[in-house]
Design a protein around this nucleic acid. Structure first.
Lengths: 104, 104
DNA sequence: CTTTTTTGTTTTTTATAACGAACATAAGAA
DNA sequence: TTCTTATGTTCGTTATAAAAAACAAAAAAG
């Protein structure tokens, strides 16, 4: 549910509800309602505003963290992989290092 | 913009505006407004309803029409990443790992 | 051709998202 | 202790998302 996701990201950033509301330019009353799921139908613009101080994208607000298997390759993963490849990571590099990390 | 995206997917599926509205359970008047961008602030529930007959996800409605993810990376990359994730690699792990590769 | 049905648009109305202000509660400072 | 100050909640209102209905234009059927 979107309310849980927002609260989770907000607290991960160490922001209070009031702080996030101010930074995002939305009312804290409504943010409170959303987080407690008294309302759970925010608009795109609302989500877009909130995503800025949370330093994320609207899409990521919608992905729940216990992603089902088919959802493993969400947009965020794709972005990360894309950037790594651009930075010069080869498949061999990846295999080598990921195995080493797994072993330790 | 979301209206263009919806119209694009609707037409790709060969659906009329009225058909999509009926299938999704939303009013055609509002759908018309959204597609023509007279309104461009739909709610999550609205997008969720529309995503069903369009056979897509809300997240994908929000992504602009770049190449779908399957086309960006090849099968081998997908398999490698999939395996690594199954072995417990988190996004944070991946970022650390790719930074190390970049540094070497 | 005329009539009917399909398409999307415009208008009007209703429901509710979202706001601002008042409020409660607790934590910290005096 | 009492007085602020920071936090989130509840209340009352406003703005607007979304529906329903009426409409226009075209396409298809007769």
């Amino acid at each position: 549910m979107i309310g849980d996701r927002i609260k989770e990201l907000r607290e991960k950033k160490g922001l209070t509800l009031t702080e996030l509301a101010d930074l995002a330019g939305v009312s804290k009353s409504y943010l409170s309602h959303i987080e407690r799921k008294l309302q759970n139908n925010p608009s795109l613009q609302m989500l877009s505003k909130i995503s800025v101080p949370l330093e994320t994208k609207v899409q990521y607000l919608l992905t729940d963290q216990q992603a089902p298997k088919e959802d493993v390759f969400d947009e965020e993963w794709m972005a990360l992989l894309h950037k790594a490849i651009e930075d010069g990571m080869s498949k061999e590099d990846f295999v080598r290092l990921s195995e080493r990390i797994r072993m330790q």
